[in-house]
């Protein structure tokens, strides 16, 4: 076989092995994506509550989690928290003992910080006049938030949010550093067996790229749906 053909064969042969980690990658993505979104909404509500007691902690939280590498956050949660007796004895230990729980937690905490800022950008982008029109009609603050701010802010936030979901998907690869066998974890195993880094990681890259394409496409459709009122 020519070297090129050999490489191609290796790339293709690696795919099914790497895909053994696909389920875990998806689980990490979906779980921390959804939990992170919930966290982001809570942080957003705290930030725009108008109360310093709520907004200040949220700001500090966001600053810390956006201002430090996610790999460090993963290590602190996985290696660091176990040092504390109180944590080992708490009900959270069931989650924090497992690398999977630590991975989901770290990704959730991280993406929550980013997404809350994205959502806040959307909220700030809602024209003041629309909220005044709602107020003038007698809509309560809550009704204005739910029926005016939210739908408009969501549409404004979709492009940035879809970027964040792609970042999150890529960040899942970092959990292979805490023994988890996601796609990255399996790729590293295949690499150790074959000593063919170029082929194995090319194969991995292609799979990630396909996932990125699907995410982009899904959000593109969602954005079009949410923007149907803007087109003629």
């Amino acid at each position: 076989m020519t070297p090129v053909l050999e490489s191609l064969t290796l790339i293709i042969e690696s795919v099914p092995q790497i895909l053994m980690g696909f389920g875990l990658t998806l689980q990490l993505l979906f779980l921390s994506g959804i939990l992170g979104l919930i966290l982001a909404i809570l942080l957003l509500l705290m930030r725009i509550s108008g109360s310093a007691y709520l907004s200040a902690p949220a700001m500090v939280y966001i600053y810390v989690f956006r201002g430090t590498p996610i790999l460090v956050q993963i290590f602190i949660i996985y290696h660091g928290l176990a040092q504390f007796e109180a944590i080992r004895e708490s009900i959270f230990w069931a989650i924090l003992r497992e690398p999977f729980g630590c991975g989901v937690l770290a990704l959730t905490l991280n993406t929550g910080a980013y997404v809350s800022e994205i959502l806040r950008g959307g909220v700030l982008g809602v024209e003041r006049g629309l909220l005044e029109a709602g107020a003038a009609l007698g809509l309560s603050k809550r009704h204005r938030f739910i029926h005016i701010t939210t739908p408009i802010a969501v549409r404004l936030a979709i492009p940035a949010y879809s970027n964040d979901v792609i970042s999150l998907m890529k960040s899942t690869a970092l959990v292979s550093t805490i023994t988890l066998l996601d796609m990255m974890g399996y790729a590293r195993i295949v690499y150790a067996e074959t000593y063919a880094p170029y082929e194995v990681f090319t194969s991995l890259m292609v799979i990630y790229l396909l996932m990125t394409w699907i995410i982009q496409r899904a959000f593109g459709l969602f954005e079009r749906r949410m923007s149907r009122h803007i087109r003629q």
Binding site: E127, G129, L130, E132, A133, G134, A135, A136, L137, G138, L139, S140, H143, H147, I148, P151, I152, R155, M226, H229, I230
Partner: peptide
Amino acid sequence: RREVGMVFQNFNLFPHLSVIDNLMLAPRLV
């Protein structure tokens, strides 16, 4: 505010709602 209607220079219609839904929103909610 329910007793006082207001019309603005730049309309301020809710862009994400159809015309009829713009009209129905406040009566339905309030």
